[in-house]
Design a protein around this nucleic acid. Structure first.
Length: 567
RNA sequence: CGGCGUGUAGCGCAGCCUGGUAGCGCAUUUGCUUUGGGAGCAAAGGGUCGGGAGUUCGAAUCUCUCCACGCCGACCA
């Protein structure tokens, strides 16, 4: 049966008004253009038009993965708890993991990722180093019970992901496999026509050593990335570092003084109250530690970086701010008035506190702060560590460039896992000497459904979506004017429709008995790259009116020239 | 998980304060007119007013409770 590409039979309903819960542009446009419909929080149906786009993304990903030598398979979405207990993640993963049990009260989860399953496959299938390297991948529905699903398919709970897992005999092999995926990912995002950037990243829950993220650049992105074109440095803000600008400490000019600051608990309020700047305030954050609370000290205008902080010795991970009760017990005052002077707990000072003098900090007494505090006099000069988020203008780690900050949507993430899972689950092969070796793994994800949203964030205008050609649900839309009244238009439209399809193009024929304005508006909303208008007027002149979705003016072309343009 | 907010026709909303048996726009259906940028006129269909309980002669409206959804926060001294 021939696939229907006639608008009247396509079951597409577009919306003039947007459901009020849509926040970002891609979510709004996906609903208006009829790509998706929401079922429940974080759950979406892909409607026929949206599914076509999703399939196009999959096709590109699949082609490039195959080209890179990866093997496609399909694992179950539902996974037994035993495997997760074996890797230790059943207890570690937390509420993001959707757990369930069957009629025999056996525990399962809906897979948020598949390291355990693939490692189980690998330890059963792979016996010899001769079978390596090998890279398995799948395109699968995943479920993560997100704290707060939002932005449509960008942060949904159920989503489609391409995940790949490489197995090598040793670290060198793993690094080569990783590099191959790095290249494949670069090829994928280039082919999809998206502006993206590769950045260093934290490996988080998954674990392992090296990891990099692929970000589609968009202001609505949930991640901040720090980069410098001067020396090619790029990192997620979670892991971005800078060079400590190690100045000495200026001599103290002020005396240490206690001042009453009743009810002044925030840096902002403190600056207002004391008429000073946040950069002249030392802020003290108390977090839970393995042996009681720990203090983290930052310049007042800097933000704590949780990923860095939870790596400090004695700090619990994930990072948890100490409760007011704990703070009161440890400091004798409530939150808002804590300072490092005379504070009896481990102190970690951020690099950027070096060089602070005559600063303001809490006095460890309710409603009191110190002014004129100085290192070397009021408290010892500390060794400093990296605790904060970098900010625009900071030098790059090697000091050759300056950091800029951009926002991105994480669409790909590649990891060098090493032996974390293979060791826990005894995934070994025999090496040439006949000894069992634990395999080295890599894992590589691409958010298929998220890419659709990300592409729209990057490609739209007031009228609607502007698909990059490789993602477009249709290549061409035919808009016949007065189709239902003009025999000539109908004949020409049908002929053109057949001819273009024979040439292998995805053609949408807008055969609705609607006014031209309605058809134009819908064609623009759903973002088809090429538009051909067929009218009696044009036919008389042997011409078709052509307009590319990115162009603002249409032009009349001879039929043959128009066809050539679409090749 | 905490704070705030919202649930009334497929979608967007009004009505709720001050209780009296539900309305507007878009969409849908029919007819006529119109036909190159989201047409006009006329008519029609479509609602357990999120669920339950209560107050009342009477509840979309007041009270309680549950549910769903959204926004903000969970980075702060």
């Amino acid at each position: 049966m021939v696939e229907t590409m006639r608008f009247s039979e396509f079951g597409l309903t577009t919306l003039k008004e947007v459901p009020s819960d849509a926040e970002i542009i891609s979510h709004k446009l996906m609903l208006r253009a009829g790509l998706i419909r929401r079922l429940a929080s974080g759950l979406f149906t892909w409607m026929p038009l949206g599914l076509r786009v999703l399939r196009k993304v999959e096709a590109v990903v699949r082609e490039e993965m195959n080209r890179a030598g990866a093997l496609e398979l399909l694992m179950p979405a539902v996974q037994p708890a035993e495997l997760w207990q074996e890797s230790g993640r059943w207890d570690q993963y937390g509420p993001l993991l959707l757990r369930m049990s069957d009629r025999h009260s056996r525990d399962y989860c809906f897979g948020p990722t598949h390291e355990e399953v693939i490692t189980d496959i690998a330890r059963r299938e792979l016996r010899s180093y001769k079978q390596l390297p090998i890279n398995y991948y799948q395109i699968q529905t995943k479920f993560r019970d997100e704290i707060r699903p939002r932005f449509g398919v960008m942060r949904s709970r159920e989503f489609i992901m391409k995940d790949a897992y490489s197995f090598d005999i040793d670290k060198q092999g793993m690094e080569a496999s990783y590099q191959r995926m790095h290249s494949a990912y670069t090829a994928i995002f280039e082919r999809l026509g998206l502006k993206f950037r590769v950045v260093d990243a934290d490996s988080g829950e998954i674990g392992g050593s090296r990891s990099q993220e692929f970000h589609v650049l968009a202001d609505s992105g949930e991640d901040a990335i720090a980069y410098s074109d001067a020396d090619n440095y790029a990192s997620n803000i979670e892991t971005a570092t800078t060079t400590p600008v190690a100045a000495g400490y200026p001599d103290a000019k002020e005396e240490l003084q206690q001042v009453a600051t009743p009810g002044v608990k925030t840096i902002e309020a403190l600056c207002e109250f004391l008429k000073t700047d946040a950069s002249r305030v030392l802020k003290t954050l108390i977090v839970d530690g393995t042996d009681g609370p720990v203090a983290l000290l930052l310049r007042g205008d800097h933000e704590l970086n949780a990923v860095k902080a939870q790596k400090m010795p004695g700090v619990v991970s994930p990072l948890t701010m100490a409760s007011p009760e704990v703070i009161a017990k440890a400091t004798g005052c409530g939150p808002g008035f804590v300072g490092p002077i005379g504070l009896g707990m481990p102190l970690f000072f951020d690099h950027a506190t070096v060089g602070m003098s005559d600063f303001v900090c809490g006095a460890n007494k309710k409603d009191m702060h110190y002014t004129g505090a100085n290192f070397g006099r009021d408290l010892a000069i500390p060794t400093t560590v990296d605790l904060r988020n970098v900010v625009a203008g900071d030098p790059t780690p090697d000091g050759n460039g300056t950091l800029s900050i951009a926002r991105g949507i994480e669409v790909g993430h590649i990891f060098q896992l090493g032996t974390k899972y293979s060791e826990a689950m005894s995934a070994t092969v025999q090496d040439p000497e006949g000894k069992n070796q634990v395999m080295s793994m890599g894992c590589y994800g691409i958010g298929i459904s998220r890419i659709v949203g990300a592409a729209i964030e990057q490609n739209h205008d007031e009228a609607g979506i502007i698909w990059p050609a490789p993602l477009a649900p249709f290549d061409v839309v035919l808009v016949p004017i007065n189709l239902h009244r003009s025999e000539a238009v109908r004949t020409a439209a049908d002929a053109l429709y057949r001819e273009l399809r024979e040439r292998g193009l995805d053609v949408l024929l807008d055969d609705r008995d609607a006014r031209p304005g309605v058809k134009f508006a819908d064609a623009e909303l759903i973002g088809i790259p090429h538009r051909l208008v067929i009218s009696e007027r044009g036919l008389a002149a042997g011409e078709l009116e052509y307009r590319h979705r990115r162009e603002s003016e249409s032009r009349n072309l001879k039929r043959e020239d128009a066809l050539k343009l679409l090749e």
